[in-house]
Design a protein around this nucleic acid. Structure first.
Length: 241
DNA sequence: GCCCAGGAGCATA
DNA sequence: TATGCTCATGGG
């Protein structure tokens, strides 16, 4: 069984640096791609507006394709509406219309207003990261969104786990009921923390690489295992081919 | 037409 | 604690 760091190294060689979290406010600037990614650039001094863009994106991308989220973020930026003041002041129906392309727009409008209220109330305290417990107490922020905000918006050394991570590691070990059950969020997060160097850049890339791997090869159905860069170590492939 | 996407909250048991 | 349901657009 490969440990997390071996998986990280293998995926980094296969896919290269991903440069999350994309910052649309900086797209097309030197070091940034048109999509706002910044591969290899990590010493970012985020402005409050950029931090809030990441927080907004983390909520909008819940169970949603990033391309749909990018449309919403672009619309918000073009209208100078991407900020906690606007989210709090806006009517629900207006905010929902602006984020329509992200799906779940009624739920997400409520989540954004609630979250904006939290960060607006903190004011200058937004220079320092909130606690995970504080984030989880906000309606609409669960484990993955909280950890994404801590890692990508506040550069805290927190590992992010998502549906792709669990699928990939369940398959690598082929964990099912006979293997002690599938990975849980907290269980896999503890494994990552134990096996990876404590490094914000590694955590940043690792989560992004797992998402890329899930999209390219480790898909829910019709896996493309024959070209998978992890296939030599994967017990799922060994037992399903 | 179907399935999926960088989840979370809530009801039910 | 553990499933199951709901939320919803847009691309393959």
């Amino acid at each position: 069984m490969m440990n997390s760091y071996n998986v990280y190294q293998r995926l980094l060689i296969a896919y290269g640096v991903q440069g999350w979290w994309p910052l649309l406010q900086r797209n097309s600037r030197p070091g940034y791609t048109q999509e706002g990614y910044h591969p290899g650039v990590y010493s970012l001094e985020l402005t409050p507006n950029e931090r809030f863009e990441i927080i907004t994106g983390a909520i909008l991308t819940q169970n949603t394709n990033w391309a749909n989220v990018r449309r919403s973020l672009t619309t918000l930026l073009e209208n100078c509406h991407l900020g906690p003041e606007f989210f709090c002041a806006a009517e629900h129906i207006d905010l929902a219309a602006l984020i329509r392309s992200s799906g779940y727009y009624n739920q997400k409008a409520k989540k954004l207003k609630t979250t904006a209220g939290f960060f607006l109330a903190r004011g200058a305290a937004n220079e320092t990261p909130p606690s995970r417990k504080e984030l989880l107490a906000i309606w609409g922020i669960g484990p993955e969104t909280a950890d994404s905000i801590l890692l990508y918006a506040f550069n805290q050394p927190v590992c992010v786990v998502d549906a792709y991570s669990m699928r990939i590691f369940n398959r690598l070990e082929n964990r099912g009921s006979s293997e002690g059950g599938e990975w849980t969020y907290m269980g896999l997060q503890a494994k990552f923390k134990a096996e990876l160097p404590v490094d914000v850049e590694v955590y940043n890339e690792f989560h992004a690489l797992l998402v890329e791997h899930g999209k390219r090869y480790c898909t829910s159905k019709n896996q493309k295992c024959f070209k998978c860069p992890l296939k030599s170590e994967c017990r799922f492939l060994a037992q399903n081919s």
